[in-house]
Design a protein around this nucleic acid. Sequence first.
DNA 1: TTTTTACGTCAACCATGTTGACTTACTTTC
DNA 2: GAAAGTAAGTCAACATGGTTGACGTAAAAA
Lengths: 185, 185
Amino acid sequence: MVDVKSVANPLFLREEELRQAIEMLFFAYRDFTGGPDGMLAEIGLGRAHHRVIYFVGRNPGITVSELLKILRITKQSLSRVLSHLVEEEYITQTPGERDRRQRLLTLTVKGVELERRLTADQRERIADAFRKAGADAVQGFKLVLHGIIDAPDRDQFDVSGGPTHLPAARSGGKLVGSKIAGGKR
Amino acid sequence: MVDVKSVANPLFLREEELRQAIEMLFFAYRDFTGGPDGMLAEIGLGRAHHRVIYFVGRNPGITVSELLKILRITKQSLSRVLSHLVEEEYITQTPGERDRRQRLLTLTVKGVELERRLTADQRERIADAFRKAGADAVQGFKLVLHGIIDAPDRDQFDVSGGPTHLPAARSGGKLVGSKIAGGKR
DNA sequence: TTTTTACGTCAACCATGTTGACTTACTTTC
DNA sequence: GAAAGTAAGTCAACATGGTTGACGTAAAAA
């Protein structure tokens, strides 16, 4: 009974380690979304609104169908949330120039303000965790998360290890936060 | 326009890096839950059932109130899901021995079977990511996730870096996957 | 004996996801 | 120029899983 640790079956170790990861992911995500959820509730919005505001803020001028692909929900589902955000003037819709069927989505000043407040909470949490864990750990964190994400979407993330580089991701006014731009799905 | 990278404002770099982390967490969680969701749908269960089955499997004999604290939902919410799982014989309830008001929850054989199938999918995804990323990255991943989790819950996770040790976490038949055992909340 | 605790239940409501059918406007293709 | 395809929206019905509030029962603790 004493030597369990040293004699332990490596398969069991692995199982234990994987379960630990599963649980950490669960708790981390729960706490990660907890902050914004509170703020949103105060102004009568929900997590779904947050997601829309986030990705529109990240990709100004994004089309509805691009947004749908990122969120992986139906247009009817998005519609409820989006039209509310438009009514409340967090988001504006402008017809596409090249294709006038499109409604390009952009945050209003009010929308940017809210986005900033919501994301600040999450950024702070992540920044604290990064600071405590150190640069190497951050790199490992990204590498593992990268591997967890399904192939089509993970490619958008630079995980090469060097300092994060910038406008590459934004070049040509194309999408960030989604690999839709130029890629078939 | 050329030197943007090297002259870049470190605050902007930081912002970019943090947003990347936010998005990776979003996508990783989405894909991480996608597999089980599919299986569950086939047998008329949802993600909420999965969470209950997972934590009961992880903590055989857990009480209802302990489970509530892990899940952070109301008892009415849990009730719907839990009573369904009891009816369908995934979970059994037995009165506590020391305190007969308690209903101790345990997976049935059928429940264990389902839990195994659901978790296998997630374990595989994580294991693949771990394998691709390497041991150091795994350690960094855990360290950062640890920092993201709120103080009360994060303590249950051993993130010290050595090989995962085992029955410490299970000693005395107390809780795993929650720090409730013996701690005031 | 009284109070507190663990658990359960009924009822109403809300947020957010789904499917399916249909419309409108615009672009693309033959 | 007509036909087909695409972007977006709409209406309706439904499912899941969260919430609050009120109330009940049995057992433990004070």
